[in-house]
Design a protein around this nucleic acid. Structure first.
Length: 267
DNA sequence: CGCAGCGCCTGAAGGC
DNA sequence: TGCCTTCAGGCGCTGC
């Protein structure tokens, strides 16, 4: 499931392949999530950016091509279109290469919008700062978390306190910070530990080229390596690497969750 | 306005 | 072996 580190890995690999290239033609699956892909045809790609889990390609006509990878989305470059039935959109670039979005479960999404106008992508519009935003400190994270009484893990997954965190990195960060995922409030000290932990696990994820549990692939078609470094997510029944207690699986607001009962005690 | 609940999707895994 | 059921989950939408 592509979260910030996976999308950033894709962004870095995609940038040299598409920057300065003109989009000649496009096609999108008829579903509303992908059907706007052809609207991106015409302009040249000015910049390859990212906000949270959203890939943002600036076009030189003042618009942006937004790609969200959902659960199973993969971007790749091909010398020509292929017959893979799971390709949901493609764009022919001016040298003839094809940028393809493959997305088995169709949880991904494409938008072609005027730059910065994200009314059709409400989560993008409402999401919090990038994790490394220099104006974000632990007091700011504490304030943002205090705006809602939802469980801290659910808040992180909402993208509103901070952008780009999904199920894997939420479990990892809460584990490292020693915060029970079902808590509805955090102390200033906990917010400080959580911000450090979030930055750490996201940086580590990027350094390892993302986490591949099943579907995620880089633009080069390779899996990431961060799954080898996870300390908590997906490790229920195994001993906690910090205290030895058996990690426990539960369901929090319909999301599978792993935590350590000793390092992350309930209040 | 906040938020819980639901639907979207399909392959994998488990039960029988 | 094969059929059926269940599960996974980010996000948009609806309705309270």
């Amino acid at each position: 499931m592509p979260e910030l580190p996976e999308v950033e890995t894709v962004r870095r690999q995609l940038e040299p392949l598409v920057l300065g290239r003109r989009i000649v033609e496009g096609w999108g699956h008829p579903s509303a999530k992908f059907s706007s892909a052809p609207l991106a045809a015409g302009p040249t790609i000015d910049a390859v950016g990212r906000r949270g889990k959203y890939l943002v390609l600036d076009l030189d006509d003042g618009r942006q091509l937004i790609v969200h990878l959902g659960m199973t989305g993969q971007l790749r470059m091909r010398p020509s279109p292929d017959l893979d039935p799971h390709v949901r959109a493609w764009w022919v670039l001016d040298h003839g290469d094809v940028l393809e979005l493959r997305d088995v479960r169709r949880f991904g999404r494409i938008g072609v919008v005027q730059a910065g106008e994200y009314a059709t992508l409400p989560t993008l519009a409402a999401q919090g700062p990038e994790p490394w935003d220099p104006s974000l400190d632990h007091g700011g994270l504490w304030t943002r978390l205090r705006r809602s009484r939802a469980r801290v893990k659910t808040q992180l997954l909402s993208q509103r306190p901070i952008a780009g965190v999904g199920n894997i990195y939420a479990d990892e960060a809460l584990w490292r910070a020693g915060i029970h995922p079902a808590h509805r409030t955090v102390t200033h000290a906990e917010a400080a530990r959580l911000l450090v932990a979030l930055r750490h696990v996201l940086e580590q994820g990027i350094a390892n080229g993302g986490t591949t549990l099943r579907d995620y692939r880089t633009v080069e078609g390779r899996p990431g390596r961060n799954q080898l470094e996870l300390g908590c997510y997906g490790r229920a029944g195994l001993p906690c690497g910090r205290c030895g207690q058996e990690l426990r699986r539960s369901v929090i607001d319909a999301r599978g969750t792993t935590h350590c009962p000793r390092c992350q005690p309930p209040r």
